[in-house]
Design a protein around this nucleic acid. Structure first.
Lengths: 308, 308
DNA sequence: GCCGATCCATACTTGTGGGGCATCGAATGC
DNA sequence: GCATTCGATGCCCCACAAGTATGGATCGGC
């Protein structure tokens, strides 16, 4: 062992010092600490040597805190309290009733009612667990989860690479329908459904392949199966951009969302009858993450999704 | 050694954890801490067992802080900072340039100019040493010093019991003259001096034997030596009470103070020519008190007194 | 003034456990 | 496949914390 220069000071010294300082009596402190008195004498001697200060005045009979000792005692009380607090909090996190969960939310998924209800429900049941909600794109979420800067994501299954199978755990909590978004003044607006063939003649807005390749490719493959793959006149990186463009009449848009309730009164969402395409809304988290709070969160979200 | 239930957690665990948590790498942390890597593995294992929480996610290659670990790291950083701070402060007190000195001041002695100057001078030279000035009677000061609730007192020598010789250190920093306090309208007011014989016919105010027996007895002994011991019509427990009574014409008062400058424009202080009585203003402190700041304070007050 | 009690310090011994070294096992990159 | 990275494990050693016994100084009771 290469000899040590640094502080050999340990919590033991502080715990002993606190006990003796409070009592101003080695014997009683030793009793309280359940150690023999000479142990205290030695540890205090070492502590004083380390600090270069006498912490006690040695009286002919007994000891008394020196002025340095009095000041040091105050600090030690704080330190030991803080240590206890840190231990308690760590244990609390072990129990899963304390901590922070960093949740990734893409805007389109945050719009699902049962997601909101689930988050609300969890907050009510675990008020001491902080939900750190972060709005971020699906691919970014997956990367952040793998990297450890995010704990759980809410994304479409299409965004999850199968090669991450063993590092990322996942669970489905719902499905997303793929619909056509049209402006209320559009000819399709009053229709109950449309076909891909009909869409082919329109100016079509779709997702951006660069920001969501898995999603894009699965959608395109399904379109091709109908025999009427659209040509996107504009790729949109987010659903809100796409909706904005539809709202100003730039064209019709293919979007995946929950139900047929549109986010804008000027927009109608129409089922596409011949498109065989379903996405799953997935919870994603690191398989190695042992956080009990996270497990509880996942369980509660899944349960909430089922009973919706 | 009776087996221990309590926390075996030590600062070593926290220091190791902090290093590894910062690096998220056992090897580099071991290098920084100048210990071998297996030592860290074991200490972290013990720490996790103690807390009941996994602080790191073990990856196939390397580690990463778990969410509990992240939270714990923040607390540990605080704790270790606070420990360093406490050590620095303790060392500072060892150097004598930091700390608190509890100074007892009786009102009459606080009125001495060179005392005020001395306190001011010390504060200027040691701005990081807090002077905790406490107004209290002489006997109370001596008791508090012996008891350890006061660090240094400023009292007349008459208040110090010789039997405390080996427990209380003392040093003279000036003398106090014993004078007659008279109202400006009194017949003595324009005199340069009076005799005890003249005083004998007056209504005389003096100190209270109960609150200052040493002072009272020395004064009375000197009075008796003059052959004209006064009879006190009123004993006063403090000088301010005595001055108040003199100011309203209740009588003349025998007081010990510095110079002939009275605290009240209606009062004159007249020397008593035949009274052979001198008191010393003393600094008193515990002989066992090793505080460097206190020594510095005592030295500075003595020096200030000499050069006044 | 002697005896016992109190209280911290010291001397000596014991055993726990922290650390070093060597090695393993798993994953990764060329 | 082979070398490398990285944490975990096994084994040994010795440093040091704690225990027992005792010393030295003071104080109180009779």
């Amino acid at each position: 062992m290469p000899h040590k220069y640094g502080s050999a000071m340990e919590l033991r010294h502080l715990r002993y010092f606190r006990a003796i300082g409070r009592e101003e009596h080695f014997g009683r402190a030793a009793l309280a600490l359940r150690v023999a008195q000479p142990a205290l004498t030695r540890q205090i001697r070492d502590l004083e040597a380390e600090l270069g200060v006498e912490l006690f005045e040695r009286l002919p009979r007994g000891v008394r805190l020196s002025s340095a000792g009095r000041a040091f005692l105050e600090e030690v009380e704080d330190i030991l309290k803080q240590v206890d607090r840190a231990v308690d909090r760590a244990r609390g996190m072990g129990s899963g009733h304390l901590g922070t969960i960093r949740v990734g939310l893409s805007e389109i998924i945050a719009a699902y009612d049962y997601i909101s209800y689930g988050l609300f429900h969890f907050r009510e049941n675990e008020p001491s667990v902080v939900l750190d909600l972060r709005s971020m794109g699906s691919l970014h979420q997956v990367a952040a989860i793998k990297e450890g800067t995010l704990d759980v994501g809410l994304v479409y299954d299409a965004h999850i690479d199968d090669r991450d199978r063993d590092v990322l755990e996942r669970a489905p909590i719902g499905t997303g329908e793929t619909l056509l978004a049209v402006h209320q003044s559009h000819a399709f607006a009053q229709r109950d459904s449309v076909t891909m063939a009909e869409i082919a003649g329109e100016s079509v807005l779709g997702p951006a392949r660069a920001t969501a390749p898995g999603y894009y490719d699965r959608m395109m493959a399904a379109c091709i199966r109908t025999g009427n793959a659209p040509h996107f006149t504009q790729e949109c990186t987010t659903h809100s951009i796409l909706f904005s463009l539809v709202a100003v009449g730039m064209g019709v848009g293919i979007v995946t969302t929950a139900g047929t309730r549109a986010p804008n009164p000027n927009i109608r969402l129409i089922p596409i009858s011949d498109l065989d395409l379903q996405f799953h809304v997935m919870l994603v988290w690191r398989a190695r993450d042992r956080s009990v709070a996270l497990r509880r969160f996942v369980d509660m979200m899944m349960q909430q999704a089922q009973t919706r």
